[in-house]
Nucleic acid binder design. Structure first.
Length: 493
RNA sequence: GACAAGGUGGCUGAAUGGUUAAAGCGUUGGUCUGCAACACCAAUUUUUAUGAGUUCGACUCUCAUCCUUGUCUCCA
């Protein structure tokens, strides 16, 4: 008996606009695709939030016993630039600016991306394919779309014929747009003369002479359009129809809309059963934007080296902060919010650390099985981690009550409580058990300085029992006092 | 401008028709302590942007207004 047979998940499907019971195509197996980063610069903090949410979803599905194939791509071929640059590739532009090889840029930022995710305790995806590694698949896909009459070739470039597609299909199902509205609202840009209609999008672009990243194809030496890679890689590894496709809200249109159109045009069926979109991350009530300076890197957040926050925050504190809100809501990153989360996080960790010290009793004053099911119900309801956390705090309260003798649990219930707390906190939410001393180095040194001062006073009063006590107690905790000519310093080991 | 999402206590943030609107932080009181800090216990605030409407009953549905955000062009 697998857990998923008992715990039934509801997922909010962007396609239908409502919560639906989750039923995988193949019982016990889940195929999940999430649009990954473009590795031409440091990973965006908002990007991290999206992946963090899907990491939690991945973890929960695995926890329920599903065999999950989680595919998250690396976009290393870059996207088409603004048409003013005549289809120049973002990665190429940056590379030329820095006078280095494009793949060197890709390599550097891919490593950076992985480092950040490791710091945040992400589980690696099952497959992490790159766009440049799947050019052949993308070319094959284009051929099919052309054969089926939904794309046309102009001057070595291939465009998807949105108007033709919309005659027999519905372009706009996901974003709830109508082609009519798009026609009236699409800006006219220069350099689009090759397209039959402004709504059409590129499947293959002929490379300009200065364009470094290029591959041969039946149409020209060039590079694939940016919507194509996800369709090629998702269907290659998960099949023409798979369970879950995730990404940031801002990818809904046009990116995901185009993915649906490409799959439909090439394979004649809709690619995805459940579309999930994570919402945006704001900074102090405003969208993050490099141009206004309202932005902070993951790295700067972790080191405290920034202008927005009063201190450095541990990765788990940031994960906890994220899990305290729904993945579907806009989350506002503020110093007050992080400080509050940090306190709550440590409170929860303290309770968990107390668990192993608790003594079992003859009776239980708390219904652990019911509580456990409440935890599952929270996650089953479209991965409602804030509610789960509320339940975890309820358990933390019980733990403290037991410790002070105002509540009790049988050995069996105690074991269940411990197991469930650990599973949800560490396996599902992906938090790491740290204590305050691990993070607040400044606070620690401040406290020790105070002790040193008190000890000095005790010594001045010839209260050696006190001064020795302070010295010995600190030593027992791994803090060594060093008396010198110029005063007392301390070291930790 | 068009389309979409949203505006809940001092702060963060759940709950989409039905008893006292989660939880965390904060604040106040208590326990602990020589005193404090930490920790724990308890209490505490909102009537759900604004104004109408539907309903026996609305945060939850409808309309209007104000505001925020996303997308429409590369974007998590």
């Amino acid at each position: 008996m697998h857990l998923y047979e008992k715990q039934k998940i509801q997922i909010y499907n962007t396609l239908s606009g409502k919560k639906e019971g989750f039923k995988p195509i193949e019982e016990g197996y889940v195929g999940m695709y999430v649009c990954g980063p473009t590795v031409y610069s440091n990973v965006h903090l908002g990007n991290v939030r999206t992946f963090m949410s899907f990491d939690m979803i991945f973890r929960y599905l695995k926890h329920l016993g599903y065999k999950v194939r989680y595919v998250r791509n690396i976009t290393d071929a870059g996207h088409l630039e603004n048409d003013a640059d005549v289809g120049e590739d973002k990665i190429t532009k940056k590379a030329r600016l820095e006078q280095i090889e494009p793949m060197e840029v890709v390599q550097r930022y891919t490593v950076d991306f992985h480092n950040i995710l490791n710091t945040f305790n992400f589980l690696p995806p099952s497959i992490e394919p790159t766009a440049t590694g799947h050019i052949i698949e993308q070319i094959e896909l284009i051929k099919k779309i052309i054969d089926n009459g939904f794309a046309y070739v102009v001057n070595g470039s291939v465009y998807f014929d949105v108007h033709k597609f919309d005659e027999s299909n519905d372009y706009g199902v996901l974003s709830k747009r109508k082609l009519e509205d798009l026609i009236h609202n699409t800006r006219q840009l220069d350099g689009q003369s090759d397209k039959k209609n402004p709504q059409d999008f590129a499947l293959w672009k002929r490379a300009e002479p200065q364009h470094i990243m290029r591959w041969p194809s039946p149409w020209s030496d060039g590079f694939p359009g940016w919507h194509l890679e996800c369709t090629a890689m998702s269907t290659k590894y998960l099949g023409d129809n798979f369970d879950i496709h995730g990404g940031g809200m801002d990818l809904k249109f046009p990116h995901h809309e185009c993915e649906i159109a490409q799959s439909q045009a090439a394979k004649g069926q809709t690619p995805v059963n459940y579309w999930m979109h994570a919402n945006m991350l704001h900074l102090n009530g405003q969208r993050m934007s490099k141009s206004t300076g309202n932005t902070v890197n993951p790295d700067e957040l972790l080191t405290g080296n920034n202008d927005f926050f009063s201190k450095a925050y541990a990765p788990s504190v940031i994960r906890f902060f994220n899990a305290q809100s729904s993945y579907k809501s806009v989350l506002d990153l503020t110093d007050d919010g992080l400080l509050a989360s940090e306190k709550g996080f440590f409170r929860l960790m303290d309770a968990i650390n107390l668990l192993s010290d608790l003594k079992a009793d003859k009776v239980s004053t708390f219904n652990v099985s019911e509580w456990q099911q409440n935890c599952y119900d929270a996650m089953n309801d479209d991965f409602n981690s804030p509610i789960l956390i509320a339940h975890l705090f309820e358990a933390a309260k019980q733990v403290n009550q037991i410790k002070s003798g105002n509540a009790s649990l049988t050995a069996e219930d105690l074991e269940l409580l411990k197991k469930t707390m650990h599973e949800f906190t560490f396996d599902v939410l992906g938090l790491v058990n740290i204590t305050k001393a691990d993070t607040g180095t400044d606070k620690l040194s401040g406290a020790v300085e105070l002790l040193i001062q008190l000890r000095q006073e005790a010594r001045a009063n010839k209260d050696f029992a006190m001064s020795d006590k302070i010295r010995d107690e600190l030593a027992a905790k791994g803090i060594q006092l060093n008396d010198g000519k110029d005063g007392t310093t301390f070291t930790t080991n």
